[in-house]
Amino acid sequence: MGGEKIKEPRGLRPGGASRVRDEKPWWDTFPWWGLFIALVLAWMAVQIITQDDYALAWERIIPGLRLTIEATIKAFAIALVLGLTAGMGQLSRNVVVRNVARTYVEFIRGIPMLPLIFTVALIVVPETSDYINARLDAWFGFTYEPSFQMRATVTLALIYGAYMAEIFRGGIQSIPPGQSEAGRSLGLTRRQTMRSVVLPQAMRAIIPPLGNDFIAILKDTSLLSVLGVLEITQRGRQFSASTFKFREGYFVVSFIYLCLTLGLSILLGVLERRMTRDRKGER
């Protein structure tokens, strides 16, 4: 140093420990949040096991889990089909198809979920089913009345279909045009090129956000409660309202959602890591 006064960058001590500047102490990088959440969940589990009020809430609410999961899976499955259709529809050469797809996406994305659920479940579904039922009755002599659970699930699917359309469209558009040009110039049809060249590559960009949407749908099934569907949230509401044990009711509801969503995001993380590892393996 020759006695010169040099301004040291912070964290770098001349002649000091051999520690590299970027290396942080373990407590700086430790996932404290994970530990904290684990502790809270453990505390909740203990409450449910040991306290009668929590146990009662658990008993009353957990039967809704089946409905929640059922609605999530159904809505996700329908939304996938809608999303793929509308996503590719937006990229269609046909001006009508393109605009129908775009209208659907913009309509849905522009309206908050709650009013949409009311609109679809209380107006759109009854009116179309009245119309269809009149025909069914006249021609075949039977009618079909969709349950509120069905209506709400379909609404969720409609909403997430529009979000997924954007995911699919973005994924497909993220593939350089040279890829489909190469496919087409080999004589593959548009459809073959989409199936064998573009979509398999787009899946890498599509799967992670789709996973996030799955978790989002799971959480949004709680909105089904506004239609009286007896899923977890509705059961929590009923329990709390009838027993005045609000704390127990809503703690248990939150506990169940947290377990589900955290479990799913850990699963997703593993899946994503595996996808990127496969990719490295190709190098």
Partner: peptide, 15 residues
């Protein structure tokens, strides 16, 4: 197109 081969500047192999 099946009768006309095309080779691109950026290769455009399917990765």
């Amino acid at each position: 197109r099946a009768e006309v081969g095309m080779v691109f500047q950026q290769f455009n192999l399917f990765p």
